[in-house]
């Protein structure tokens, strides 16, 4: 008995039984509040259901809603806006995140304080950040105009009025809010790189740039990829920013797919079609998650196996 538990072979029957009991509550909660709803949503997306028109009933319509999705110009535009948002915000966040990570990885006086300051945007509720940026971008009282134009109020720009600049402000707000998160993921990668590699490079006479380009960056690739996927998936789910700042306007220029789904589902009461939109988003994200899990998820298991 003792010998068996000392080796890492399967433990006793009783142990396994306890183990199952230990994970059971977690599995139940996740199944009831995440898995079942996801399945339920998929089934709903196969029905036509208008909340305000009970006389139409709730007929099963097969893939009709998905066909409608393929032909819906508003949905296509929302997907395009979302893709643009994901690309722009993720790219900027990775660049900034890398910069921040390199800085806070260094040793200097007051590093703890600097790290905490950088975490502030991440800790602020997104709703607060959204109201804040809406105010910063205000055409009359906004700090952005104050910083750029000072007292020359004739030059003040209504940032949220123009489709492109409104989109830009949404991206900017997201970059401000989440770059520090990207930086933390990258920082974790930096910490895994042994210092003696750098010392060796210094001895060989490599410049700072060469050390970064030929040493840091290649070794950082896994961390960068993780941050990339994490941010991509998260950016796909953007909602609060648009809800608070623009309600999708002007001219649907900031209407991301999550917000469109929310509008159809909860304001218009088109339950079947709204659910179809959300399931489509879900499938895209699921595919990205699989990628992520393949890259990262099995590491814990690998290490246990060795």
């Amino acid at each position: 008995m003792h010998m068996q538990s000392l080796t890492r072979a399967p433990r006793t029957q009783a142990d396994r039984h306890t183990g199952r009991l230990m994970i059971l509550p977690m599995l139940v909660v996740v199944s009831v509040f995440s898995l079942y709803p996801a399945v339920d949503s998929f089934l709903l997306s196969l029905h036509r259901w208008f909340l305000g028109l009970p006389s139409l009933g709730r007929p099963f319509v097969g893939l009709d809603n998905y066909r409608e999705f393929l032909q819906d110009p508003i949905a296509h535009q929302a997907l395009l806006v979302t893709a643009g948002f994901v690309l722009a915000s993720t790219a900027l966040e990775l660049l900034l995140g890398l910069g921040i990570a390199l800085v806070i990885h260094e040793h200097f006086v007051g590093r703890g304080g600097v790290r905490a300051a950088i975490l502030v945007p991440w800790a602020i509720p997104t709703v607060v950040a959204s109201q804040m940026w809406r105010f910063l971008a205000n055409d009359q009282y906004g700090a952005i105009n104050l910083v750029l134009f000072g007292d020359d109020i004739g030059a003040y720009v209504p940032w949220l009025a123009d489709p492109w600049s409104a989109f830009g402000i949404i991206v900017l707000a997201d970059v401000w809010k989440t770059s520090s998160f990207a930086a933390l993921l990258i920082l974790a990668g930096l910490q895994l790189i042994p210092d003696d590699l750098y010392d060796a490079a210094r001895v060989d006479g490599a410049t700072a740039w060469q050390r970064f380009w030929h040493l840091t960056l290649p070794l950082l690739k896994p961390a960068l990829l993780t941050a990339l996927l994490f941010r991509t998936i998260d950016a796909f789910r953007v909602f609060d920013l648009v809800f608070v700042m623009t309600q999708g306007g002007p001219g649907d220029a900031t209407q991301v797919i999550q917000f469109y789904g929310y509008k159809t589902l909860f304001t218009e009461g088109r339950v079947g079609y709204g659910t179809t939109i959300s399931v489509t988003v879900f499938v895209v994200i699921l595919m990205l998650s699989f990628l992520y899990v393949r890259m990262v998820g099995s590491k814990l298991l690998e290490r246990r196996a060795t």
Binding site: G52, G251, K263, E268, G269, R270
Partner: peptide, 20 residues
Amino acid sequence: PVYPIISHILQRYFSRVLAF
């Protein structure tokens, strides 16, 4: 009864032609 839907379509139309 589908006013919320009609309103969203109109909002999109008017906002687009004014903003672009």
